[in-house]
């Protein structure tokens, strides 16, 4: 076909693009097993080694920061999943209402807003609030969590909204016609339909929070350094082998998690489609 002839360009750009995306990460993973402290000299006599990984276990600063980041990411993902699901529901199902334009603007702007602006503005708000109402007292887990929820709820909203847009209203309307109350319709029909989107949203919100540096730098207090903040302060001084090891662990955990989640969600999706087909065939 006509596609066949020009298809040299597209596949070669694709191959280059994917190599471009993955080579740096693979190189970093490779060097995390290098024995030499000079990151770029491969000490083939004593490598591969796990010594940088075991060094991480003894680094209390890194462990504390990881624990803090983990707690914030959990709180954030849960908060963002709840608020983001509500926002996605409003965007997809509530039609027109007064203030819809503002509502849409507020939910989509955080997706593109430069982080330095969001971070600075939120910090100024927290300072002003503390001055006037005494809350939040100081900066730490609370301010970090609020800041993270604010930017990550938009991602959940977009995911939930596009999932809902993929289903027409007929199921929900049928349930309403049969006399189900709105809350029942939501719990029995809408929620199961969007559950995969909420799970993806929760996972994305978790990683967004876990990885955030810029906004956290503004709203964190003294003594509440998140893992990216600790990494950044080390990385500014140069490449170090223990950071290579830490990065490898983080990248591999996320990669494995995303692959497993994708496979599970897809399998569940197939089962649901099959059930729907069977149900349709049974009529």
């Amino acid at each position: 076909m006509s596609h066949a002839r020009r298809s040299v360009l597209v596949p070669s750009v694709m191959a280059f693009g994917f190599a471009f995306l993955y080579v740096p990460i693979l190189a970093m993973i490779g060097y995390s097993f290098n024995n030499s402290r000079l990151v770029t000299v491969w000490d083939s006599a004593n490598s591969p080694t796990l010594k940088w990984y075991s060094a991480l276990w003894r680094n209390q600063q890194v462990l504390d920061a990881a624990w803090l980041s983990f707690r914030i990411a959990l709180l954030n993902a849960t908060g963002a999943a709840i608020l983001g699901t509500l926002a996605g529901l409003v965007l997809a199902r509530f039609g027109r209402f007064r203030g819809r334009t503002l509502f849409t603007a507020l939910t989509t702007a955080p997706l593109v807003m430069p982080e330095v602006i969001t971070g600075l503005s939120l910090l100024l708000l927290f300072v002003a609030m503390e001055q006037t109402i005494g809350w939040p007292a100081g900066r730490g887990v609370t301010t970090l969590t609020i800041a993270h929820i604010t930017f990550s709820l938009s991602y959940v909203a977009v995911i939930v909204q596009s999932r809902l847009a993929g289903f027409d209203l007929s199921l929900e309307e049928a349930a309403m016609d049969l006399g189900a109350r709105p809350v029942t319709v939501f719990l029995r029909i809408t929620l199961p339909l969007i559950a995969p989107a909420i799970v993806s949203g929760w996972l994305l919100a978790f990683t967004l929070s876990w990885d955030d540096l810029v906004i956290s730098q503004f709203v964190a207090g003294p003594g509440s350094s998140t893992l990216p903040m600790v990494i950044f302060s080390k990385v500014r001084l140069g490449v170090t082998p223990d950071i290579n090891a830490l990065a490898t662990l983080m990248v591999l955990t996320v990669a494995v998690g995303v692959v497993i989640a994708t496979v599970l969600l897809r399998r569940q999706e197939r089962r649901r489609e099959r059930d729907l087909r069977l149900a349709a065939g049974a009529d």
Binding site: L21, M28, W210, P228, V259
Partner: peptide, 23 residues
């Protein structure tokens, strides 16, 4: 292929920039 595009998006921005420093 789509997953290969999305995967880097899930991994830390900071670490991906850091990976380039080594190169």
């Amino acid at each position: 292929l789509l997953m290969l595009v999305i995967l880097p998006f899930w991994t830390s921005f900071l670490l991906r920039v850091y990976a380039w420093m080594g190169l």
